[in-house]
């Protein structure tokens, strides 16, 4: 069994307690709604997409430390990134948290702070928490107004 601190790293605890970019986004033009029925977590992601670039992104909702910290760090990572890069980053993040493929050093670098979620791969039941914000972001970018449900 891995150490709990691998999962609950200081950065995660910090962002879980004090999420960044948390709240409404007035001039958002993309909205996503996410729900994890297993634990009742609900997150909304607001995106301001302009000329294919994520100019601003914020989120709101309630969830566990993992899901809130993940959404918080996601918003920090995405600001100013082209949409295609944002989607590619989710692919890398997904691979990191599920452990489905080896992550190269280059990719770890690209993930930057998001690499703190590597511990999640030892907790298959918590992968949904870590990816809820990202799935919701994807729905926003796809202009899918339906609730994203992770089950």
């Amino acid at each position: 069994m891995s150490d709990l601190r691998e999962l609950y790293q200081e950065v995660i605890l910090d962002h879980g307690r004090k999420p960044r970019n948390f709240g409404p986004l007035e001039d958002a033009n993309r909205e996503g709604h996410g729900h994890n029925p297993l634990c009742g977590d609900k997150l909304d992601v607001h995106v301001k997409l302009h000329d294919g670039v994520v100019e601003d992104v914020k989120f709101e909702g309630a969830g566990c430390a993992i899901s809130v910290a993940s959404a918080s760090l996601m918003t920090e990572a995405l600001k100013g990134k082209p949409e295609a890069e944002a989607r590619a980053l989710f692919e890398k993040f997904h691979a990191l948290t599920t452990g489905t493929e080896e992550i190269g050093l280059d990719e770890l670098e690209a993930l930057d702070k998001l690499a703190v979620f590597s511990g999640v791969r030892d907790y298959p039941l918590r992968v949904k928490c870590a990816t809820l914000g990202w799935h919701t972001l994807n729905a926003a970018l796809d202009q899918d107004e339906d609730m994203v449900v992770t089950e």
Binding site: L4, R17, L38, C39, G40, A65, I66, R126
Partner: peptide, 30 residues
């Protein structure tokens, strides 16, 4: 206060304590 049941459940699990974290299939109660 301040701690989500899912996090509580994971940490208790580390101590081999099995509890239920969630809405217990009774969302109207929540």
């Amino acid at each position: 206060e301040g701690d989500h049941p899912h996090d509580i459940g994971t940490i208790l699990d580390h101590e081999a304590i099995a509890v239920r974290a969630g809405h217990h299939c009774a969302q109207p109660v929540m």
